[in-house]
Design a protein around this nucleic acid. Sequence first.
DNA 1: TTAAGCATTGTACCTTAGTATAGAGTCAAG
DNA 2: CTTGACTCTATACTAAGGTACAATGCTTAA
Lengths: 142, 142
Amino acid sequence: MTKFTIGQLAQKVNVNIQTIRYYERFGLIEKNIEEESGYRKYSESDVEKMQFIRKSKELGFSLKEISDLLSLKIEPSTKCKEIRKITDSRIENIEHKIVELEKMKNALSKVAKMCDKPDAPICECPILQALNSENEVLKKCH
Amino acid sequence: MTKFTIGQLAQKVNVNIQTIRYYERFGLIEKNIEEESGYRKYSESDVEKMQFIRKSKELGFSLKEISDLLSLKIEPSTKCKEIRKITDSRIENIEHKIVELEKMKNALSKVAKMCDKPDAPICECPILQALNSENEVLKKCH
DNA sequence: TTAAGCATTGTACCTTAGTATAGAGTCAAG
DNA sequence: CTTGACTCTATACTAAGGTACAATGCTTAA
């Protein structure tokens, strides 16, 4: 397993070195010190973890929520009901986000289309109107 | 058009009064003062706007990004190319988010299923493994 | 007409998520 | 064997997005 320094990890996942140390303090990333140098060392799995964290952040999850996901552990039978509960509620939560994103996407498509027409009406806040006019033509515009 | 006070608006959309004033300072919500009382007054369209802001926040958009969407205006021809650019790039951005959320959802489903089996393997970080093992059974677990 | 319960402005504070800086040690190329 | 790039710890600072509080004023039901 290849090992990198913190700077190399930072570069690979395109974050600030301080951010990695911050995640370490937060408990998201483990500290793993090389004996002689006293330098932190990281492996491919840390790269994956960091990428997961960054992606999740972009999707609107907090570090606490990300931590909950990362610290799920499957051990024989013990807490499987708990894991089901967590995963199920998170799946619902994600489905809800997807639905909302789809709505927003549709609204934006409408706005784009509306804008293409040469006789486009003047519109104060086209997104809200597009969002609230499910399937009907925008008529609130004057 | 029904008018509400700030407290009523806050209650309707379930946010703190201070948050509404913060959004006003930020430029997301207009200030509209009633003559005699000096009280802010809000209408149904402010409710819609507030709901849009809250939803968008949950989906990981910043107030700045939300502001950009809300301040899109359609006016005859003038800046329609600009609007296309903004909406198109935002649509792409949303599609990317949806894809990532779908991946995460699938990974969570896998974890849930894995957990249900009586002979579930011990797993250190099942989400990452589920995410990275596109379509294959989780075999990194020991 | 007065107290409770709203509203106003202004300022200060809080949390989350980083980012920067200082002073010291380590590594590797010339 | 030094020099420049990198690391360490510790502490402080920043930015975004709120939240709380104080001093004051308006509203309304008893």
